[in-house]
Amino acid sequence: MILASQSPRRIDLMREAGFDVRVIPADIDETALPNEGPFELVERLARAKAKAVASEYREQGETVIAADTIVTLDGKLLGKPVDEADAFQMLRELSGRTHQVATGVCIVRDDSVRSFVDITDVAFYELDDSEIERYIATGEPMDKAGAYGIQGTYGRILIEKIDGDFYNVVGLPIAKVVRALKTDERSA
């Protein structure tokens, strides 16, 4: 099985679920198309990653799994922060509000291409500037969409509640992935 992602969190989730994965990240253009909604974007990117890796690296009978995760607030995408000021602005926007985390997943097996999007609502506690600054000083938010990691030592204390799959927020709705793989096996 190939995991078309270099995300350490996705790699860990797949391995913890018992999968021996080859890690081959996809190199695709991740620019949104004109008038493309965030949920359409994340599914398209997952499909493009899976197909790109499958066409170049997949061996006979091998399955490719790709995923892409976005954070969106009121329809606005919050990517990975470019610097600490950007991280501060994102966390200020998320403070006291509920946003969505969406992960697009694509599974390529034989001639089958299957994709889906999982969406989780995440509510932040109200954060004051000093809390945000302390969090940014940990370095934890700098490589994560939305400038936080729910699984992180400090990121987890920003979250008031979630409605949906915790692991989706981490970067891969692993239970749904496992079930999709089992469904594909039964129908083969």
Rank of each mutant, 00 (worst) to 15 (best):
D129K: 12
P38N: 15
G104W: 07
E59A: 14
N168D: 09
R58N: 05
T63P: 02
G37F: 14
C106V: 03
D129Y: 04
V113Q: 13
I107S: 05
K176M: 12
L3N: 06
I162G: 00
T138D: 05
E140M: 06
S187A: 11
A26S: 12
L91W: 08
E59F: 00
I132Y: 14
R109I: 02
T69P: 10
M1P: 06
G139T: 07
G75Q: 03
Y167A: 11
A188T: 05
D111M: 09
V53M: 04
D163S: 15
S95K: 10
V122L: 02
D165K: 12
L33F: 09
E126N: 07
K51M: 14
D129L: 06
R58I: 01
L172Y: 10
D86C: 08
G18L: 08
K182H: 14
P173I: 14
E36L: 13
A137P: 05
D184N: 00
T183M: 03
T69R: 05
E133N: 08
V113G: 08
R44C: 12
E43Q: 15
A17V: 05
I107F: 02
R134A: 15
E140N: 02
L41K: 14
R97I: 01
L45P: 03
I2D: 09
G171K: 12
L45I: 15
Y154D: 08
D121N: 14
G164F: 10
E43V: 05
E59I: 00
I159R: 02
P173R: 08
S130N: 14
L78Y: 13
R114M: 04
S130Q: 13
I132C: 11
A147I: 06
D12L: 03
G152I: 00
V169P: 04
D165A: 09
F166P: 05
S5T: 04
G61C: 07
V101H: 02
K176W: 09
R134I: 04
A48F: 06
D143A: 11
T98N: 13
A48I: 02
L181V: 00
F124S: 03
V169E: 07
I24T: 04
V177A: 10
V170K: 06
E84F: 01
F116I: 01
V42R: 07
V71C: 13
S112Y: 01
S55M: 02
A147H: 04
R186N: 09
Y125W: 14
K80S: 04
Y167P: 02
E126I: 07
D27S: 11
P25L: 04
D128A: 02
A54L: 00
G149K: 03
A67P: 11
R44H: 04
P34F: 04
D184Y: 03
F19N: 01
D12W: 14
A180V: 00
G155E: 01
I24L: 12
Q6R: 14
C106M: 03
R58Y: 08
Q100P: 03
E131C: 09
I157E: 10
D20N: 10
I159H: 04
A66D: 00
G37L: 15
A180R: 06
K76Y: 11
V71P: 12
F88R: 15
M1S: 12
A17Y: 05
I174Y: 00
L77N: 02
E133Q: 10
A137G: 03
L127C: 08
R114S: 11
L94R: 07
K144E: 06
